[in-house]
Structures are given as structure tokens and as C-alpha cells.
Write a protein that binds this DNA or RNA. Structure first.
Length: 275
DNA sequence: ATATTACTAGTGATACCCGG
DNA sequence: CCGGGTATCACTAGTAATAT
């Protein structure tokens, strides 16, 4: 099914056109079909990067780029012909991530400008929204999950399960398109690797909720932050709801988890400050 | 040393629209 | 027609780099 996969990096223009097509319709099914068609022709080793761009979350995460850095790029003359590839952009984001410390502001300005002078107007517009975290194309993880399933010809439930356990849709996309259902089946729960948290669901009445869940416990809703704690042996890692690691920021919680009389555990709960 | 600026990250509320 | 997903907004706290 992937005979038509191109060699070399995907032209950024192709990805931008897909994003625009997805944004132009509100029909979910159409978004899925458009995204799947693109995924089917992306080189396997680049699937993770492409999925990251398309859901507005580059694999490097936030790299310290905001309006202050991107604003001036609107004054640059756009390139007349598209030449950037997805790999070019990925490399530039890598470089931005590495460029920190004294004098980094000017260096970052240079990296951003180098990237934008090579971009067409459409590409620049896409890059600005991608880097600022404001893609607004009506297709984030949910739609992308469906598209990955369609492109890899794997049941959606299998992709969704793998994404939850791996906590990383980009990696799951690469596995699905590279190895199909078999590769996804190999993804399981792993201590010290974050898992997507189960989110709360509402119920019309308390009685309905109790009926749906069977034996339940009730507790005060205190306002804290959702935390996931992993431990095996003395190794402990903590993650937020968005799977950012916060182990070093919560040493007290690490101590508590380490003191529990267990060998390995994954906990999901809420932490509260005392300030 | 201190203040300022820019960016990241989290919570929660609300409006909107597709699709079943 | 309603549930669920997406977008948007408002607010808050914290951190890093740089200017004063």
C-alpha cells in the first residue's frame, strides 16, 4: 500500500497545502481522508515529524518562540518558489532548541529569519502558526488518530489504544505506517513512560453515574494539578496531564512515592500546594 | 543586584458544529 | 437532537534572558 512513498523529505508546500485543505472544511470525514492521503506518501522515517507538524505540536515541544521573534518576519520578502522541506524545518527547530544562554536572542533571530526568507508566503503563514502553537485547522489529535488508522489500514481502536499507552501519537503513527497492526500490538504499558491520563466524563445525575460505575467512592474536589507518578525500584518519574516531566520540580512528591512499600507502580492523582 | 520583557504551562468556562 | 471534539478566552504562576 505504500509503494508510492517518495524518497527524500516531504516538501513543506505539500504539508501546508494539506493543512489548508483540512482547515477549509468542517466535515470531519473529509479532514480524515485528506490527512490519510498525505500520510500514505510520507517517507516512513519522517511520519513522526509530519504528524507533529499537522497536529500543531512539533516533536521538540515549545522551543521559546513567540510573537516577539515571529512578528518581524512578516516584513521579510517571501520566496517566490517553494524549496523548503519538512526536514529543513525540523532541523531549524532543533537548532532553536539548542540555542540558549547568553547571546541566544540574536542567534535565534538569525535562525528564524534564515528559515523565513526561504519560505513562500503560504509556508511562512503556516510556520508562524505552527511555532506559536495556534494552528486552527480543526484537526488535532482526535482527527489525526482516525487518519493514521485509515492510512495504515488498522482499526481506529487499535491506534487509540497504542496512543494512550505510548503517550505519543507521533511515534504511534510511525509504528502504524511502518509495521501495521502488528507493530502497534507490541506497544504496552511501561513503567517510567507517561501514559495519556483518563479524563473525567460528566453524567446527567449522580444516580446515573453510580449506576454506570458500580461501587464508587466520593471525595472533595480540591483544586490542584493532575500528576502521574511512575516508580520502579528507586527510579521515580512524575508527569503532568500533558505528559511534561516535572520530576525535578516536585522532590517532595518523589520522596513520598519512593517511600511506598511497593517495587513498581503507576499512580494517577492530584497534588496540592501549601502556599 | 534588580527590573523588565518574553515565553511556557496550567485551570476552567463557553460557544460552536459535525456526526450518529 | 445531543454528545464529543475543537477553538477561544481569561487568568495565574513561574522561568530565562537581557536591560538598567
Amino acid at each position: 500500500m505504500r509503494e508510492a512513498v517518495a524518497r527524500g523529505s516531504l516538501p513543506l508546500a505539500d504539508l501546508v497545502a494539506t493543512s489548508a485543505a483540512v482547515a477549509s472544511t468542517r466535515a470531519r470525514s473529509s479532514k480524515v481522508a485528506t490527512l490519510a492521503a498525505l500520510l500514505e506518501r510520507v517517507p516512513t522515517d519522517e511520519v513522526a515529524v509530519v504528524v507533529g507538524f499537522l497536529v500543531g505540536a512539533p516533536r521538540q515541544g515549545r522551543v521559546g518562540v513567540g510573537w516577539a521573534l515571529l512578528g518581524p518576519t512578516v516584513d521579510l520578502d517571501p520566496a517566490s518558489e517553494a524549496s523548503l522541506t519538512v526536514a529543513d524545518v525540523d532541523a531549524a527547530i532543533d537548532e532553536l532548541q539548542r540555542t540558549i544562554g547568553a547571546g541566544s536572542t540574536a542567534a535565534r533571530r538569525g535562525i528564524v529569519d534564515d528559515l523565513f526568507v526561504r519560505a513562500t508566503a503560504d509556508e511562512a503563514d503556516f510556520l508562524r502558526r505552527l511555532l506559536i502553537g495556534d494552528l486552527r485547522q480543526g484537526a488535532l489529535e482526535g482527527v489525526m488518530t482516525d487518519a493514521i488508522a485509515k492510512a495504515a489500514d488498522v482499526p481506529v481502536a487499535v491506534v487509540r489504544r497504542a496512543a494512550m499507552l505510548a503517550g505519543d501519537l507521533c511515534r504511534v503513527a510511525a509504528d502504524a505506517l511502518g509495521g501495521g497492526e502488528e507493530a502497534l500490538a507490541g506497544i504496552g504499558l511501561e513503567v517510567l513512560r507517561p501514559v495519556l491520563p483518563m479524563l473525567a466524563a460528566t453524567s446527567p445525575t449522580v444516580a446515573d453515574a453510580l449506576e454506570a460505575n458500580g461501587t464508587s467512592s466520593v471525595e472533595w474536589k480540591l483544586d490542584g494539578a493532575r500528576i502521574q507518578a511512575h516508580r520502579t525500584g528507586d527510579a521515580v518519574r512524575l508527569f503532568t496531564r500533558n505528559l511534561n516531566e516535572v520530576t525535578e520540580r516536585l522532590p517532595a512528591v518523589v520522596d513520598v512515592v519512593r517511600s511506598l512499600p511497593v517495587d513498581a507502580v503507576i499512580l494517577d492523582g492530584e497534588v496540592y500546594g501549601t502556599a
